[in-house]
Design a protein around this nucleic acid. Structure first.
Lengths: 330, 330
DNA sequence: TGTTATAATGGAAGCGTTTCCAACGAATTG
DNA sequence: CAATTCGTTGGAAACGCTTCCATTATAACA
């Protein structure tokens, strides 16, 4: 593609200016508009692309953010990444993704940390902020996405309220008995706090309304396998009009499958509320709690950029409120 | 953590040698063993870490491989990545992961291609090799993992044979009617070839044995949502002892859910063979076709390293054979 | 008109490596 | 013993950029 590499000198010669001027054009320095235009033209003509390494070495900025994501295989994470990237892109920044798919990979990151020298910030998606202790030199800006920490910038959902919404809705629809489907992620890097909060909100409203949520009304299940099928069947057959809160759309889908096999009709024989509003939720008519996923990515990016570009400004923590999306399952 | 940066000069001074010697120690050059040891000691003492950028700029190697993965959210990909990384690590190489979660991200990669200048090779996981046309300057070594191309090094599974195995096994277990569950991935970057091959092998054996596989015996379904539930119910209730081949363990799981709801017992009321041997397959007793996932990663890494380290050697293409894992569902 | 402040620019120095070549001492050879 | 070779080593040059300082051109002012 590029035959010989074009350097800043070539551009300078072509535009008949000094290399300093070219550099200034590149880095938003002070340049006379006319000169700037001439330089830009030269850049375009020669197809010049600054050498990343030289740039770094000379003390420039890498314009890169390290994004740490867990192995969790949901659409949720990809979507955040998508908007996160899009927002960075607008400011000419890039994300580099490091999936923490296993403890080993995490250790690798810590011991190597070769990335640390080449990024301007770190974003943790859903990942427990505690891990920072192991390697973070606390100079590097950090942002937490869908995760909390008292001293760090973060953007997250009020999951407690999400749980409350679900409970309130189910109550208003005259559910008789209540159940929660809890999807367990075993990755120690992922904080189960979200789930606990969702459940907490759900439980608190129920108790407030004099309905309890006992241990056996919570069905735990492996993230991939879903909750125990037998338990779901029991719930659907034994109770007249159970109100079910799936802490995850995935788990709601499992229940929908089972229900359909049993000939149980949603909204009539049972009530179901999911959580996430995944892309397919509309197709199957799932009532669910929506998270502002796109905002997570976008705001997350803004927050980290703020830290980098204007470190003197105070840290911001942004909370979103979940929204109930009404569909056919209630 | 590191307070001031330690440079090669500091090390040289500490070890009382020239910088050239230190560099030679770092890059496996010729150095007197005694000197080498002294230098190594200085490196350890000072906690010296070579500056990545300076290294690159000076024409060194980046020791990095770009791994392109699709958005598909299966355990399969993470596991390959895991072993891929482990193998690279042994040779002091690193992978940098770029998920192609959308066309936009792909375009971004192409237009930017800032990574291209800083990696020594590219690995495509499951991704259609055609995309290379758009940006690959064909100087950079490439390896295809679970994907084929006549001129490129690749490692893949004989999926056709996997399909055959499934058919043969189901026939041997006296299945009466045959069905295939086909999971559709809509990402244009992912080649559906695997699926086609699995299906092809399955069909060919059936036809050979005078059992046909007509259109309506193939159930297509969205990757996340699974095959149409009604169709699965029909299969399980209408036929006496259907032999079902799920082209994906995920889809096998969907069927298992439905069956269980209907009170149908695997191996007795129906026969089921999956594909992938995911980690949970054993737990649910799913008969399945095993792919040597760990080998994919390992061999993939070896292949790309071969291309980089010994480009004069001929390109290798490695094919694996699938294996049938017998469990409770047949 | 001469003086001073302001805006724009050129290019040397420096970033931390690798690589190459010259130089050195020791070992081998004639 | 001189000449040559070999195994090591030191360090200058180069990589392509950013930054800073000196310089020049221009405008503003007295």
């Amino acid at each position: 593609m590029d035959h010989k590499k074009v350097t800043i000198k070539d551009v300078a010669k072509e535009a008949r200016v000094g290399i300093g001027t070219v550099s200034r054009v590149l880095n938003a320095g002070v340049v006379n508009p006319k000169t700037r235009e001439r330089v830009q033209k030269a850049i375009d003509k020669l197809g010049y692309q600054p050498n990343f390494f030289a740039r770094q070495l000379a003390g420039g900025k890498s314009r890169r953010i390290l994004a740490l994501i867990p192995e969790v295989k949901t659409e949720f994470h990809w979507r955040i990444l998508e908007t996160f990237d899009a927002c960075l892109d607008r400011k000419d920044y890039q994300s580099i993704i490091y999936p923490l798919t296993s403890m080993k990979r995490f250790e690798n990151l810590v011991s190597n940390m070769s990335f640390a020298q080449e990024v301007e910030g770190i974003a943790l998606l859903t990942i427990n902020a505690d891990i920072l202790d192991d390697f973070w030199d606390s100079q590097l800006p950090v942002v937490l996405i869908e995760q909390k920490h008292p001293d760090l910038p973060c953007v997250f959902l009020n999951n407690y309220r999400g749980g409350k919404l679900a409970a309130q809705h189910l109550i208003s629809k005259d559910a008789t008995d209540f159940f929660a489907l809890y999807s367990v992620v075993e990755n120690p890097l992922v904080d189960p706090l979200h789930m606990e909060e969702r459940l907490g909100g759900f439980r608190d409203v129920l108790e407030q309304e004099n309905r309890s949520l006992s241990k056996d009304q919570i069905v735990y299940g492996d993230f991939a396998l879903g909750p125990s099928h037998a338990k779901l069947t029991e719930i659907l057959t034994k109770y007249e009009r159970p109100g079910i809160f799936a802490l995850t759309d995935n788990f709601a889908l499992f229940l929908l499958q089972v229900a359909s096999s049993l000939g149980k009709v949603p909204a009539k024989d049972f009530l179901l509320v999911g959580y996430d509003n995944q892309s397919w939720a509309e197709k199957v008519g799932l009532t669910t709690i929506e998270q502002p996923i796109d905002d997570f990515g976008d705001i997350g990016a803004q927050l980290i950029l703020e830290r980098i570009l204007t470190p003197e400004k105070p840290i911001r923590q942004i909370e979103f409120n979940p929204q109930l999306i009404l569909r056919a399952t209630t």
